[in-house]
Amino acid sequence: SSGGSSILDRAVIEHNLLSASKLYNNITFEELGALLEIPAAKAEKIASQMITEGRMNGFIDQIDGIVHFETR
């Protein structure tokens, strides 16, 4: 797709992000992006959206560029 990722790509990214949230206590956007094979800024945006929508527990430290995952 030309304008970003398809629905399937997005679903795969979100699935992998949720998997990462179970493996890590926290991770930088750079590391997360590398893990998900997407730019760091996109990793931040998707993580932020999932947390806001209540689909993933955690919070974002924008100063240090880190996602902190919280286990249920």
Rank of each mutant, 00 (worst) to 15 (best):
S2A: 12
S2I: 11
S2H: 12
G3V: 12
G4H: 11
G4S: 12
S5L: 08
S5H: 10
S5D: 14
S6K: 10
S6R: 08
S6A: 12
I7C: 11
I7D: 14
I7Q: 12
I7M: 12
L8S: 11
L8F: 14
L8Q: 11
L8I: 12
L8T: 11
D9R: 04
D9E: 10
D9M: 05
D9K: 05
R10I: 15
R10C: 09
R10N: 10
A11K: 09
A11E: 13
A11T: 10
A11V: 10
V12N: 09
V12I: 12
V12H: 09
V12C: 13
I13Y: 07
I13Q: 04
I13C: 04
E14N: 03
E14G: 02
E14T: 04
H15F: 14
H15T: 10
H15Q: 14
N16T: 09
N16C: 12
N16F: 14
L17T: 02
L17G: 01
L17S: 01
L17Q: 02
L18Y: 06
L18H: 05
L18D: 03
S19A: 15
S19M: 15
S19D: 08
A20W: 13
A20M: 12
S21Y: 04
S21Q: 04
S21A: 10
K22H: 07
K22S: 06
K22V: 07
L23C: 10
L23V: 11
Y24E: 01
Y24T: 04
N25D: 09
N25L: 12
N26I: 10
T28H: 03
F29I: 08
E30A: 11
E31I: 07
L32Y: 00
L32G: 01
L32D: 00
L32W: 02
L32Q: 00
G33P: 00
G33E: 05
A34E: 09
A34K: 14
L35H: 04
L35Y: 08
L35W: 07
L35C: 04
L35P: 00
L36I: 03
L36V: 02
L36G: 00
L36F: 05
L36W: 04
E37S: 15
E37Y: 07
I38G: 00
I38H: 01
I38E: 01
I38P: 00
A40S: 07
A41C: 07
A41D: 13
A41R: 09
K42A: 15
A43K: 00
A43G: 02
E44P: 01
E44T: 09
E44M: 15
E44V: 15
K45A: 14
K45R: 11
K45S: 13
I46K: 01
I46M: 08
I46P: 00
I46W: 06
A47M: 06
A47D: 00
A47H: 00
A47K: 00
S48P: 00
Q49N: 08
I51D: 01
T52N: 14
T52A: 15
T52K: 14
E53Q: 08
G54L: 05
G54D: 03
R55N: 04
R55L: 07
R55M: 06
R55Y: 05
M56Y: 03
M56R: 00
N57D: 09
N57P: 09
G58Q: 02
G58W: 10
F59N: 05
F59Y: 14
I60M: 04
I60G: 01
D61N: 13
D61P: 01
Q62C: 08
Q62S: 13
I63Q: 10
I63W: 07
D64L: 15
D64C: 14
D64S: 15
G65P: 04
I66M: 10
I66F: 06
V67R: 01
V67F: 05
H68L: 05
H68W: 15
F69W: 06
F69Q: 01
F69M: 03
E70N: 13
E70Q: 13
T71G: 10
R72E: 10
R72F: 14
